[in-house]
Structure formats: C-alpha cells, structure tokens
Design a binder for these strands. Structure first.
Lengths: 153, 153
DNA sequence: GTTTTTTTGTGACCGAGTCTGGTTATGAGA
DNA sequence: TCTCATAACCAGACTCGGTCACAAAAAAAC
C-alpha cells in the first residue's frame, strides 16, 4: 500500500541515462558538479533537500559547492528531470521526476518531521478529473498530508 | 466550480468571534497586535503571507511589528484557528481555518504567481479514504496544483 | 492606583537560497 | 594536438523570510 523505500531497480538507471541525454541535448556541458548531483539523485527515490545533497556528496568526496548544487537542481527542474516540492520547515526538497506521471506523494509527521512516500491511484484519478474542470493549464500537483506517524503516537 | 472570491458573509464574523473566544478561553490577553491580525484575517477568505498581513495592517494605520504578526500567527495556528500552507516561492501563507473540514485548496500559476482557491468534493473524498489506509494519525492535508492560469496562456 | 504578568516593537540575528567575480574545465575548430 | 571561446565551477558576499532577546507598554489582578 505504502511502499517504504523501493530497492534500487532499473528505472533509476533509466532516469540517470535520460537525464544525461536530456542535458546533453539541451546543450549543457558535462561538468563534474552537475554530474555528481545527477548520480546521487539517481540512487535516491524520495525527496532530498539541497543541503542533504550537498552533505552526501561531500561524504563521497565529491567536493561540490552548495551554489553548484542549487544551480544543478535549477537546471534539472527546468528540464523537468527533477520535481521540487515545499514540505514545510523552510526549505525545498527535490526528487527525480519519473516519466509518465508515475509519481507519489508525501506524508509528514508533524512530530518528528519524517517524510514518507505513498501512492494512491484513486487520488490521482480525482486530481486528473479535477484538472479538466479548472480554467488552468495544469502541469503538476503535490499532495501533502500532515499527521503523526505510527512511531510518534 | 471554482469560487473566485466570495463576498463577506456571516461565516467570517463567526470565525472572528470563535477566534476571540478561543483565545480568551486559552488564557490569552487581548493585545492590540493579535486582535488586529484576527480582524484582518476575518475579512479574508484566501491565504495571505505574513508580509502581506503586515503591509495591509500598516495601510490601515495599525502599526504592528512584523514579529508580532508572526507571533500572532503562531498562536492562532496552535489553536487551529488558522491553517498554514507552503505554496512555494519561499514563504508560508496563512488563512482562517473554517470549522468542520470545510476547506479549499489552491492552484498556483507558475508564471504570474497568482494563487486561486478551489473546492472539489470528490478530491476530499479520495483523501479521506486514503487517510484511513495510512498508518498515520492524519490531521490535515494540502493539495497544491501548479500550472498556468487562463490569463497567462 | 499599584503590582504583576502578558504582549508588543525594535533591532540583532539566523539560515536557506541567490548572485557575483574570478578561476578552471570542456569541447570545437584549426 | 594546441588554441580559444565559453560553459561550469567555487567561494564568499548578499538578500530575504523568519526568529530571538530585551526593554517598554498595556492588561488584568489586587
């Protein structure tokens, strides 16, 4: 029902490959910092903050500047390769955008701050129908559920 | 379908009254700044940023400090009288919380930044059912739809 | 009206995110 | 392979939303 953390499977490498190609096609050069960010994100399935990305890269001895992380994320978001979401607590989070609307949403524990992903087809359905009724050109959507996780009750 | 800006009607005064009572019951004294914030919010039906609240109060010659605005909002959120939401673009927004789950969600135009409210019973329904399936004690939820408004297309 | 306690405003402060300038790496063309 | 224009990089300065600390002002309690 609520897949916790899917183990690495092929779609992640697919994403990395797609990302690399898309960036090249759009005329971006292959610098170290951006590549490192793409590699890290590829191995990740749920959202990370820019700071987390920065820290993890340093742990792996990829000394990229924080500004480069933001720049890379900005480019990736522009190419619709990552999805940025605001999750409260001041600060955006980023996750790889999988193709074909295959996406999940997030539950936040207001106690411990833990973020968990979930998928729910009926919810997607309701949103899709709703999108047709709005006078907007709908591109993406985020659903954020607040509550208290099992551990904090 | 998507009510733009409902004219002031009784529920707003109800909210103001309820807010005042709740605050008094919880032992808060009636200072000028918090009262001003409550009054302003009561006349508002959709979300405002702290900065917007601060500015509008100054326009009305209520010289409240920005810290007081944040403090008032923090208290009101704690009493579940206002709902805080993250809408992107760095910064929270606040709106009066109407009783009984009677709430709306928001569409953001990624071009001009305009925020519009909408209601959608089927969506609420899907979320309610989903909440039962999650291992969390769900308290609130936000749905944020990104797109391009009619004016920006 | 005096005392006690909350509330308020100011200004210093913090941290996420952005911008800038100078440096380094990339890739295309000779 | 060498050159060179340009993209990408990093560090550090800066912006801006939000918080903290503290002294002054205002409520309630007496």
């Amino acid at each position: 029902m609520a897949p916790k953390a899917k183990p690495a499977h092929h779609s992640e490498h697919e994403w990395e490959q797609r990302a690399t190609e898309t960036l090249a096609d759009s005329g971006y050069r292959s610098g170290g910092a951006r590549t490192a960010v793409v590699e890290l994100l590829a191995g990740q399935d749920c959202c990370l903050s820019a700071q987390q990305i920065h820290d993890r890269l340093r742990e792996r001895d990829r000394k990229v500047g924080i500004a480069s992380v933001y720049r890379a994320l900005e480019v990736l978001e522009g190419e619709e390769l990552v999805h940025r979401l605001e999750v409260g607590e001041g600060g955006s989070r980023y996750e790889p955008a999988l193709p074909g609307g295959d996406h999940h949403h997030h539950v936040i524990c207001d106690d411990c701050g833990k973020v968990t992903a979930f998928e729910d087809p009926p919810l997607e359905d309701a949103i899709e129908k709703l999108a047709g009724r709005l006078p907007h050109m709908v591109s993406t959507h985020d659903v954020i559920i607040h509550g208290r996780c099992a551990g904090c009750s």
